[in-house]
Structure formats: structure tokens, C-alpha cells
């Protein structure tokens, strides 16, 4: 009985105040459209940044005269290090082949192969690379680096390149996160402002209800239900529009552009679910909380 009454009240107030209701719904719709476009863009960008970061690696050069046993031993040590994702063995011959391809004249001049055997380590998290390096080649009291196994000659990362990649990607990620945060705040403000306006036009009504002896929640429930209905309407419309946009524009392009087809973007279904939750949550909370000011009679 109660729920039915509140539902009827909510529908009545929407019917009697179509323009504020429409404005609230439209602001939810626009906000979700913007968010729905922006979230995948952020994901694609951070995905691309992460891909670049995956290229960061650590080179472990072995001494020239190591035996096969020592190589196996060192591989074991490296694989046991914390934060190490893969350990790839690059033999003398492989290294020579690759380097001479890049720089054929210099290597032709050399005649012999001056390159040592080496391991290439990719870390789980690119930020850990210095830690792994310190673990493999701890700094001694004198400031020089030693190595943890006699078979290892040197542990090196391409210092400047690594640093550049790490900072650049970090800036990109941070900027995207910041933009996303600002957008969410702006959306919440827009929606709550619209709701507040439509409530403001009904503040007299609320005052009268209070004078007749309605409890705060008796007044609030219809507004909250109205928020749920308008929020979900806006959400459904926005999701439909996004789906149409994705099918009509993005999918045909995805075949040609790597950025768009980046695997890290979430599926439309999940995005729709999230947007729906945000729409209903914001408009429900918005109408429930904004009412508080007018309930003080």
C-alpha cells in the first residue's frame, strides 16, 4: 500500500511538472553520454601507455667464459627474484646476429663476436625495475656495484630511455585520471543542480506537506522514486545512444586503428551497467539529499 502510494505520488509529480522532470532526465542523459565516450578513451590511452611501459627491460650480462651450468644457475636466480615476469636468454650468437643487423659495418670491421651471453628481464611492474636491479647488483659501501653471482658481469638498464618512458606514461595516466575525476565532479554538480532547481520550484509544496504533519521520509520517498525513474530513463537512453554510436562508428574503424581496438577497453555491457548505476545513484541521492534544505520547516 505504502509503496504503491509513493509510486503513484512520484508519477503524479512527474506528470504535473514535466519540464523540470525532463531537464533532470536530460542532464543525466548528457552527462552519461560524455562519460560513456570518455571512459573508453581514457582506458585506451592508459592501455597504450601501459603497452609502451611493457618494453622496459633489464639486461643481465654474463662473464665471457661461463659454462652451461652457470647459465642455468643464473637463470634460476633471476627467475626467483621478486617482481620478475619473464627471463629471456639471449645467447652470444643471437646478440651478434641482432646487433650486426642494426649496425652491419661496425660488426664487419670487428670480425669476431665481442658480445657476452645475456638475460633480458621483463618486470611485472615497470616501476620495480630499479628495485630488481638493486637486488641483482647491490651497491657496496664504497659506492660500487657488486653482483650476486660470480657468473654475472654486469646488470644494466637503458637508463635514460627507461626513465623517459616511465615519466611520460605516468604523466599521461595522471592527466587522464585527473580529467576523468573532473568530469565526474562536473557531472555530479550538473545533475544535483538540476534536481535542486526542480525541487526548489516545489518547496512550497514541501512546506505545506510538513505543516499537515508529513514525516520527512513520507515527503522524501516520492522524490527519491522520481529520481530513480528519471535517472534510469536517462541512463537507458544514453546507453542506447552509445550502443548505436559504437556499432555505427567505432566498430568499422576498429579494424584499422590499433588504439580503438586496444584490448583494455571494457565491454559495452559492463560500461552500460556502470553508467546505469551511476545515473540511478546520483539522481536518487541527489533528489534525496537536496530535499533536506526544504524539509527544515
Amino acid at each position: 500500500m505504502r509503496l504503491g502510494f509513493f509510486l503513484k505520488e512520484a508519477l503524479r509529480s512527474m506528470k504535473r511538472n514535466p519540464i523540470p522532470s525532463f531537464a533532470a532526465m536530460a542532464s543525466v542523459l548528457v552527462t552519461l553520454l560524455v562519460l560513456g565516450v570518455f571512459i573508453p578513451v581514457v582506458q585506451a590511452t592508459t592501455g597504450a601507455a601501459n603497452e609502451v611501459r611493457q618494453k622496459v627491460s633489464l639486461e643481465v650480462y654474463l662473464k665471457r667464459n661461463v659454462t652451461q651450468d652457470q647459465i642455468t644457475h643464473v637463470r634460476g636466480i633471476l627467475a626467483d627474484q621478486q617482481g620478475v615476469k619473464t627471463v629471456q636468454f639471449v645467447s652470444k650468437a643471437d646478440a651478434y646476429k641482432r646487433e650486426s643487423k642494426q649496425n652491419p659495418e661496425a660488426y664487419a670491421l670487428l670480425g669476431s663476436n665481442p658480445l657476452p651471453d645475456s638475460f633480458r628481464i621483463t618486470p611485472d611492474n615497470p616501476d620495480d625495475i630499479t628495485a630488481i636491479r638493486d637486488a641483482l647488483a647491490p651497491t657496496t659501501a664504497s659506492g660500487k656495484r657488486t653482483v650476486i653471482d660470480p657468473a654475472i658481469d654486469e646488470v644494466k638498464n637503458r637508463k635514460d630511455e627507461t626513465d623517459k618512458i616511465l615519466t611520460a606514461t605516468k604523466v599521461v595516466k595522471l592527466a587522464m585520471l585527473l580529467l576523468c575525476g573532473l568530469l565526474v565532479v562536473a557531472s555530479a554538480l550538473l545533475v544535483s543542480n538540476t534536481i535542486r532547481l526542480s525541487l526548489f520550484s516545489r518547496r512550497r509544496e514541501v512546506e505545506v506537506m510538513k505543516l499537515v504533519g508529513a514525516t520527512d521520509w513520507f515527503i522524501r520517498w516520492p522524490f527519491v522514486i522520481e529520481g530513480i525513474i528519471l535517472g534510469s530513463l536517462g541512463g537507458i537512453l544514453a546507453i542506447l545512444m552509445l550502443a548505436v554510436g559504437k556499432i555505427a562508428f567505432i566498430d568499422p574503424l576498429a579494424a584499422d586503428f590499433a588504439l580503438i581496438s586496444a584490448p583494455q577497453t571494457m565491454s559495452l555491457g559492463l560500461l552500460a551497467l556502470l553508467l546505469m548505476l551511476a545515473a540511478v545513484g546520483v539522481s536518487t541521492l541527489g533528489s534525496g539529499l537536496s530535499l533536506r534544505r526544504f524539509l527544515k520547516v
Binding site: K210, L211, V212, G213, A214, T215, D216, F218
Partner: peptide, 15 residues
């Protein structure tokens, strides 16, 4: 609110 239900109130501007 429960208190007000026990009091009838009539205003100049009807409300």
C-alpha cells in the same frame, strides 16, 4: 510531524 497531525491549521493564504 506526529504532533502536528493532532492540530488542524488554517492559514491566510490557504496553503
Amino acid at each position: 510531524p506526529y504532533y502536528r497531525r493532532n492540530i488542524g491549521m488554517v492559514f491566510q493564504d490557504f496553503k
